[in-house]
Simulated assay, not measured.
Amino acid sequence: MAEEAWLANNHVPGVLSGKQPLVASMDGYVTVGGEDEAAEYVEENGKPWQASPGAIAWLVEATRKWKPRRRRSRVDV
């Protein structure tokens, strides 16, 4: 399950951990799999991750060696 989520957007662990900045959509659209989609995810779902001790560190470590899938499409948010 974690690998499927990571393949959908490999920016989420970096944004959750603070190693990657939040990149907001400037035009109301997000790039599927992009940094702006990761920012949307973290803004909507980051609090439970932060409230779970060790969860973000686990995610970062679990995904550290996985290779990203490249696909970019813009969708209305």
Rank of each mutant, 00 (worst) to 15 (best):
S73E: 14
R72S: 13
K67Q: 13
R69I: 10
G54C: 05
P48E: 04
T63Y: 07
P21I: 05
E40N: 04
G18D: 03
W66T: 05
R74K: 13
Q50C: 05
L59M: 11
T63K: 00
Q20W: 13
N45M: 13
V77C: 12
A39L: 00
V60W: 05
R72H: 13
L7P: 03
E61A: 15
A38Q: 01
P48H: 06
M26A: 15
S17P: 02
G34K: 02
V30M: 01
D36A: 04
W49D: 00
R64K: 15
E35K: 09
A8M: 00
A8Y: 07
E3T: 11
V12L: 06
D27T: 14
G14L: 01
G46V: 12
G28I: 13
G54E: 06
A8V: 01
R69Y: 10
K47R: 14
A57Q: 13
V12S: 03
E44R: 15
R71H: 11
E3C: 04
E35T: 00
A39I: 02
E4A: 15
R69N: 08
R71P: 04
W6S: 05
V23E: 05
Q20R: 10
I56C: 01
Q50M: 12
L22P: 08
E61C: 09
V42Y: 06
V12T: 00
R70F: 14
E40A: 07
K19F: 12
E35M: 05
Y29A: 06
P53F: 09
G18V: 05
E61K: 15
I56K: 00
V60Y: 00
T31V: 14
D76K: 14
P21W: 10
G33V: 11
G33M: 07
R74Y: 06
G28Y: 07
A2V: 15
V60A: 06
A38I: 08
V15E: 04
A57L: 01
E3S: 04
L22A: 10
N10R: 03
P53D: 01
D27S: 15
K47I: 05
S52L: 09
R74A: 07
A5H: 08
R72N: 06
L16N: 03
K47N: 08
V77R: 14
